[in-house]
Structures are given as C-alpha cells and as structure tokens.
Design a protein around this nucleic acid. Structure first.
Lengths: 163, 163
DNA sequence: TGGAAAATGATAGTCATTATTATTAAAGGT
DNA sequence: ACCTTTAATAATAATGACTATCATTTTCCA
C-alpha cells in the first residue's frame, strides 16, 4: 500500500508505509469529496458516511441498502459510480473474490491479512511488515506500482490437528 | 498450494513445497478425467489438451475458441462446466480480476504467485521463497499447519503508468 | 449390447456492473 | 441571491460473464 498524495494530509512522502490508524480521521466528508475533484452532493456525503463508519467490508449493494433507509430516492448506479471513484483514487480498496460481488473497505484502516483454518473455518488476522516490504520490492522489480494485494493463508489450526 | 492427494501421484506428504515440474507430466487426459470422477468424453479430452499444453493463463472463452477450431459443435457451457470441475478439485487454479473474465491455469506447474495489472490485465508470475518462508512462520506462530495460500498482487504496470 | 446415469448443446436466465439520457442540482462569476 | 455552465442524478436499458434448464445424445459396465 502506498500513501495517497492528498493535500490536506500531513503526509511525509518518504514514509514507506501506511500509518496504523485512519489517516483521514476528523476530515469531513465534504473535504474528501472535493479532494476527489467532484461536486459535493447529499448522496456522496451519505455514501461516505456509511463507508467510513460502517462495517469494514461491504458490497456496493449493502451501501445502497443502508443509504436507502435514510434516502429512499438514491439510485444504485450512484453508489457504484462513487465507489468506483473512491477506488480509483485509492480511498477505498476493492477486493473481488470468485464471482461474488466486489467488497470494498475504507483504505485508511489498519491493513491485515487472513489465516484461515480449512477444517473449522476459524480466521486469524495477522500483519507482517516483512511480507509487505517484499511485495513492494517484487512489484518494483517488474515495473509495477502496487495498489493492493490479497494474501490468504489456509491451513489446519492446532485444535483441529489434535482432533 | 498443496499437493493434490490423487492416487496415481507419487506424493510425499512431508514435502513442504511443491515440486518444480508438472506432477502430472505423462499422465493421460483420460486418467485425469476419471480421477475427477467424471465420464471420459471427447470434449473433455479436447479441453484438457488445450489447458495442459496451451498458454499458462487462459479464459474460458479462449479455451472455447481454441477447441472450437477442431470441434465446432462444442458448446461453451461445456467448457465452463468442466473448468469449474477442474477448479473445484484443484487441477486448475482460478484467478479473478476486477470485472474481467476469470483466468485459469493448470495447477501442477511450478508454484508461483501473480502480479496483475489492474489497468490492462497483464499477469506476471513470480516466486519468492522468502515470502513462502515467512508464511510458514506466521502459520506456525498461530499453531496452524499451512496447506496452501493465495497471494495476488495488484498494481499498474510500467506501460500503463506511462499511458 | 442394453439401459441407467451422466454429459452435451442450445438457449434462456441471473446477477453485478456499466452506459445512456433526460432531468435536477452544484459551483463560480456577476 | 441570480444566472449559467457544467456535473450529478435516477431510472432504465444494456452488457457480459457465467449458470440453470432441458430435450437429446453418449458413456460405460452389467
């Protein structure tokens, strides 16, 4: 993950990794929308409200449904369009998994990967900076600018090994 | 990725990493189809021929088109159906990318991960033993016995960065 | 070889996402 | 505050990848 180069942020360009906490904390929705180069609309504010304060992984449909409660007139195309913009400019991360609808998450939250037990389904979240660094290196070596990654480990947990 | 536990293979369960070469080399298509618990048909043989000898990443559509040349009567549903079976039983690996059609690859080849351009879809294969080792360590630290993993890096390739 | 069970091809359907378009709303200059 | 331009919206149709259905054909083994 790289830092976004957004003007209102106290960004140090040399900082190689994301800060641990939401770097946009306290930044109003309006400011973020302007930073995207877009006009500020009620719909976009409402979408951002869900995205920034709701669950950490959400589908476009879920966002649409939540916003619909307070604003039944919103169209789902608006949600898709705006999520795409947010994704293009790295404010949210888009993850697509086998055929399922894309899931998004506010990109400024802590990053973590998953270790899943294929026997009982238990999920352990972990973070490993060394792996992140190696990923950056690999991408660079091939001339790529990394935007995101998926790292999912599967195995059998201690409990299930005994059983 | 873990070894498949298919009876005709000389599998050593203790081996921590995949062998470097295609573990199914020399195994006839028919045998693999039977191993899947499916009936042997011309269509499936033709699909396997493309999958096993063709390019290393392919879409269902591409397989369909290639097979169509020698057998214009094949339906694309047949290709999708069979690729799904192969994927379910880990004979091929399915990789999905933002909105684009799924790409498949014969799974028995060297283990590698993918670096994908989210702009143009280009895929670079890479292998990094350090990352593999770190994964093992992480799993161990949490008491897990690692069986396989998914590591997909996404970014923008040099070419697309310029454009 | 006969016949149950499975596979096929054609086609229609599903579902997420995207394009289109007429209408409405926002931002900036006056 | 009022225009005016320009973008954003909601509704809807369209797209595209896949999947289900089903009548017909094939496989395979008893």
């Amino acid at each position: 993950m790289e830092l976004n180069n957004h003007s209102f942020l106290p960004v140090s360009e040399n900082q190689p990794h994301l800060p641990k906490n939401d770097q946009y904390k306290g930044v109003p929705h309006k400011k973020i929308i302007r930073e995207l180069g877009l006009k500020v609309t009620q719909q976009r504010i409402q979408i951002l409200e869900v995205v920034r304060s709701g669950p950490s992984h959400f589908t476009a449909q879920e966002v649409f449904e939540i916003v619909s409660e307070s604003n039944p007139d919103i169209g789902f195309a608006t949600v898709y369009r705006f999520l795409k913009k947010l994704s293009e400019q790295s404010f949210v991360t888009e993850v697509r998994m086998g055929g399922m609808p894309a899931r998004y998450e506010w990109a400024a939250k802590d990053h973590h990967d998953h270790l899943t037990c294929s026997r009982c389904g238990k999920i352990v979240e972990f973070e490993n900076q060394k792996i992140e660094d190696l990923q950056e290196k690999i991408a660079l070596r091939h001339g790529f600018k990394l935007t995101h990654h998926i790292l999912e480990l599967y195995g059998v947990c201690g409990e299930c090994q005994r059983a």
